[in-house]
Design a protein around this nucleic acid. Structure first.
Lengths: 327, 327
DNA sequence: CCGGTTCGTGTAACCGGTTACACGAACCGG
DNA sequence: CCGGTTCGTGTAACCGGTTACACGAACCGG
C-alpha cells in the first residue's frame, strides 16, 4: 500500500496540515520541521495523490481536446501544438477522437466532467452540445469551427487565402473551375468556397462537386466522372487529401497537369510537397497552441469576454498549377 | 454550485447510499425509490463527480500514452489505434509528448500518478525510469521498444522484413549497400540493421551512414556527401522520412532512380506512395490497439505473466527499387 | 403463529488530500 | 516586566463519492 499524508505525518511526528504545507511548498513552516517531513516523505516514498488533491482543490489540472481523427496530418499537428503549450502550463491533456463513435456527444459530455476545460475541433459534436456544455459552465475553445454564442474560437484565415488562390488560377487563364468538397461538411470548407466565389465574380462561375468524405479515395473516385466528359480548367479541392487522390488518378490516366487541368489542395500536408501540389498552408501547430492559451485564460478566469482569433494562412504555389508538372 | 449526491439525497428524501446505488445502477433498490431518486437527479441536473468516484474506488479509469512526437504519421496512427480501443473499454486517454521537454522523465512519472496504466512508445524515457515505475507497481506496456524485465511489450517485426527487403535489393543486383540511420537511436532501427546484415552474409557488406535525426532534412543533407564521390547501389533508410529527404535531393540532382541508385524507407507513410518509395508497412494502428488491450489485461488483473507481442510487417515494392522511376 | 431469511434502506467510515480557524510559544516595544 | 503581535503548528471540517455493516419490515415454511 502506498503511503498517505497521514503516514508521513505520523512518521515525522507532525500533523497532516504540516505535511500538506511542506508538500505544497507553502511557507510558514520552520526549516527544521520541513526537513523532518521531507525525510519522512523520502523514507516512505510518499507521492501525494492527485485525486485527493484535485478533489480538495476542486480542479482537475487537466484539459481535453476533441478531434474527428488523427490520421491526416492536420489534426495531429493541432493536437501537438496544443499538448506542448498545455504541458508548459502544467496541465495534463485528455484526448477524444470521435471517428467511428456513435456516442460522440455523450463521450464529450463525459470528458467535460474530467477536465477544467475543453478544446473542440471541427465537426465533432453539434452546436447544441457545445451550447449545453457552455451553459453548464464548461470552459470551451472551438478550433476550425465557426463561433457559437459567447464561446471562444480559433480559426485559420480561409476566405482571404481562397481568394488569393483563385486569383492565382485566374491569372493563369483558368475560367471554368470545379470546387471539390461539400461546404456543408465543414465551416472551414464553406468559407473557402466563399473566398473562391468572391474572386470569381464577375469573371466566372464555379461548379461545386459534392463529396461526402474529404479523403484520397473520394478524390480518386470522382476523377472517373471527368475522364469521360470535359475537364474543367482547374479543380479546387477542399483539402490536400482529396487533391492527392485526384492527382494520382489523373496522372495515371495520362492527363497533363497543369496543362490540361490544374489542381489545388488545402493544408500543405507532407505529401503535398512530393506531389508538387499547389495548396494553402495552415498554421496547424499554432492553432493548437493558441487554443491552449485561450483555454488557460478562461480557466484561470483572467478574461471575461470571448475572443475569436483568426490566424494567417499562406498560398504555396507548386507544379500542379504553375510550370511543368513532373508526374 | 453543482448538485452533489447529498443534495439529491435530500431532494429525494433518501440517504446518499441509495442515491449512489441508483446512479451506479446496482440493483437492490425498489423501483419506486429508484424513480424518486432519478427524478431528483434530473431536477437538480446531478452529474456524479468523477473525482469523488475515483477517489472512493481508487482507480482513475484513465490510461496514459507517452510518445516522442506526433508530427510523423507513425506515432499519430499508433495513438489513434490506442485511443479507439481505450475508448471502447471506457477509459479516458491522457497523452504526453516528450519532444522538446527537458523534464520528460519527471513528466512521465507525474503522469503515472494520474493513470491506471501507461503505454510508452519508442525512445521517450530511459529503461531506468521504466523499471522504477514498474517497481512502484505501475501497469506499463512498451511499444516499439525492446522488452524490459517483466514489462509487457508490443513491437512490429523488424528483422524478418529487413531481410526480405534486402533480399529484394540483392535480387535486383545491388551489392554495395549503405544503411542510413543510427542503430543506437532506436532499438527498432537496430533490429532492421541486423536483418539487413543477415541477408547480406556472405554475399556482401553494408556501410552504415550515421545520422542523428531521422527526418527529411537529415536525408536531404547527407545526399551531398555522395554526389561528389561514388554512389552505392542502394540506400537502405531507417525510415521513410529520411528516404523521402534523400529522394528529393537525388532527383533534383538528376540522379537516375533506381537505375543508378535504389532507395528504400520504412513505415509506408502517406507520402511514400506519392514518392514511389519502396518501403515496409507497419501495422501502426494495430500496435496501439494491441497495447491498449494488453494494458487493460494488466489493469484488470486478468493476467500474471508478461506478454511480448510481435506484429507482422509487409514489404511494399515501388518504383525506387523496381521498374522505371517517375521522378 | 412464530422464528429465520430476504429485501430495502440508512449510518458512518473511508478514499487522500486542503485549509479556515484556534491556540500556545516566542518575540517585541514601551 | 507586560500586553499585543507574529510565528508555527494542530484540529477538524470539507471536497464528493463508495460500501461494509446494521437494522427494521416483509415474507415464508412448517
Amino acid at each position: 500500500m502506498r503511503a498517505t499524508i497521514r503516514d508521513v505525518a505520523r512518521e515525522a511526528g507532525v500533523s497532516i496540515a504540516t505535511v500538506s504545507r511542506v508538500m505544497r511548498e507553502s511557507d510558514g513552516v520552520r526549516a527544521a520541521t520541513r526537513e523532518r517531513v521531507l525525510d519522512a516523505a523520502r523514507t516512505l516514498e510518499f507521492v501525494p495523490s492527485h485525486l485527493g488533491r484535485q478533489l480538495a482543490e476542486r480542479r482537475h489540472a487537466a484539459n481535453g481536446i476533441v478531434f474527428p481523427d488523427l490520421s491526416g496530418p492536420y489534426y495531429a499537428e493541432v493536437v501537438l501544438g496544443y499538448e506542448s503549450v498545455a504541458g508548459e502550463l502544467g496541465r495534463s491533456v485528455l484526448i477524444l477522437s470521435t471517428r467511428g463513435r456513435d456516442d460522440a456527444e455523450a463521450a464529450v459530455e463525459a470528458m467535460a466532467e474530467r477536465c477544467d476545460g475543453l478544446v473542440i475541433l471541427g465537426r465533432t459534436v453539434s452546436n447544441r452540445t457545445v451550447e449545453r456544455l457552455a451553459a453548464r459552465g464548461a470552459n470551451i475553445v472551438l478550433v476550425a469551427r465557426p463561433p457559437v454564442g459567447g464561446v471562444d474560437s480559433v480559426t485559420a484565415r480561409n476566405r482571404g487565402s481562397a481568394r488569393a488562390l483563385t486569383e492565382h488560377l485566374l491569372d493563369l487563364g483558368a475560367r471554368r473551375l470545379v470546387f471539390v468538397g461539400d461546404p456543408s461538411t465543414s465551416p472551414d470548407v464553406g468559407e473557402r468556397l466563399r473566398g473562391v466565389r468572391e474572386a470569381l465574380v464577375p469573371r466566372s462561375e464555379v461548379v461545386i462537386h459534392h463529396v461526402d468524405h474529404l479523403d484520397e479515395q473520394a478524390g480518386a473516385r470522382l476523377v472517373g466522372d471527368y475522364l469521360t466528359r470535359a475537364l474543367p480548367d482547374a479543380f479546387v479541392c477542399a483539402n490536400d487529401e482529396l487533391a492527392l487522390g485526384m492527382l494520382r488518378r489523373l496522372r495515371a490516366a495520362g492527363v497533363d497537369i497543369p496543362g490540361r487541368v490544374m489542381v489545388t489542395g488545402w493544408d500543405d500536408v507532407m505529401a503535398a510537397e512530393y506531389a508538387g501540389l499547389t495548396t494553402v498552408r495552415q498554421p496547424m501547430r499554432d492553432l493548437g497552441a493558441t487554443a491552449a492559451r485561450l483555454l488557460d485564460e478562461l480557466i484561470s478566469g483572467a478574461r471575461a469576454h470571448p475572443r475569436h482569433e483568426v490566424l494567417p494562412t499562406e498560398l504555396v504555389i507548386r507544379s500542379t498549377t504553375l510550370g511543368k508538372d513532373t508526374p
